[in-house]
Structures are given as C-alpha cells and as structure tokens.
Nucleic acid binder design. Structure first.
Length: 119
DNA sequence: ACGTCAAATCGTCAGAAAAA
DNA sequence: TTTTTCTGACGATTTGACGT
C-alpha cells in the first residue's frame, strides 16, 4: 500500500492527525488540535522555520518516537498474523487427528461390535 | 466506466507491561 | 520511579469484488 497524499477532514474529529506527504514534496506534521489549539496541519517547512533550539529538539524526539512506534506496530501485527497462522495450522492438524480417530473407532466397532458392555 | 461495500492495511494514541 | 516497548482501539485510506 502506498503512503499517498491524503487530506483528512478534521472537522468531525479534531484530534485526527495528518502525516502523509503531499504532492509538493512537503510533509504534514501531525498536530493534535485538541492539545495545541492551532491550525490543524503544519508543513515541515513552516515548522522548521518556527521551531529552533528546544522545540527543534523535542520535535526530533517526537519524530523518533513516532518512527519507533510505527515500526513496533508493524512488528506487532506481523507477530500476531504469524500467531494466528500457527493456531490455524494447529486447528487443521487436530481436525485431521480427530477424523482419523473417528475412523479408527468406527473400524474397531466393526471388528468387535459396539454392543460390548463396560463392566 | 462508475459507484458501493466489506475487508485489509496503515499510522497514531493511550495505557499496560517490561526493562533499566 | 522513570523510560522504553508492546498492543488494543480508533479513524482514514486502499484494495478487490460485485452489481448497475
């Protein structure tokens, strides 16, 4: 899936974030409206102009945190898929075993009859 | 070709869990 | 206790199938 430009409507949900690149090669930086009470979206360029020193540093920290979390989420989903596949394989194996046991029981009953009483 | 819908996928946030 | 990592939930977007 491509990370194409997307202009999300923030009027319905003020905390929606915009992070995808737009067509001009700029990047919208995620800004939570609920927290910052400013224009919902800023470009990287304007942010760079505005933020120096401490702000720049905390921006870097935030970007790094988001990047790490993005990768963590991908890895988490990959592991979860793998786990589900594993469970599905196990289900298939158990179903086959169950079928085989039922067949075995059936043939044993044919050999010995099923009217024998447990004492 | 087009619209519609459901399912899959993604990035982010918040909070739980683990590590330092 | 603080920091870092993991994961469920959410909303937005993409994708593929289907009917018109």
């Amino acid at each position: 899936m491509t990370n194409s430009a997307s202009t999300q409507n923030s009027t319905s949900n003020p905390t929606i974030l915009q992070y995808a690149p737009n067509g001009e090669g700029q990047f919208f930086i995620p800004v939570s409206v609920a927290v910052t009470n400013q224009q919902p979206y800023q470009t990287a360029t304007t942010l760079l102009q505005e933020n120096t020193g401490v702000h720049e540093e905390s921006n870097k920290k935030r970007e790094l945190r988001l990047l790490k979390n993005r990768e963590a989420a991908r890895e988490c989903r990959r592991k979860k898929k793998e786990y589900v596949k594993c469970l599905e394989n196990r289900v298939a194996v158990l179903e086959n075993q169950n079928k085989a046991l039922i067949e075995e029981l059936k043939s044993l009953k044919e050999i010995y009859g099923d009217k024998e009483e447990i004492v």
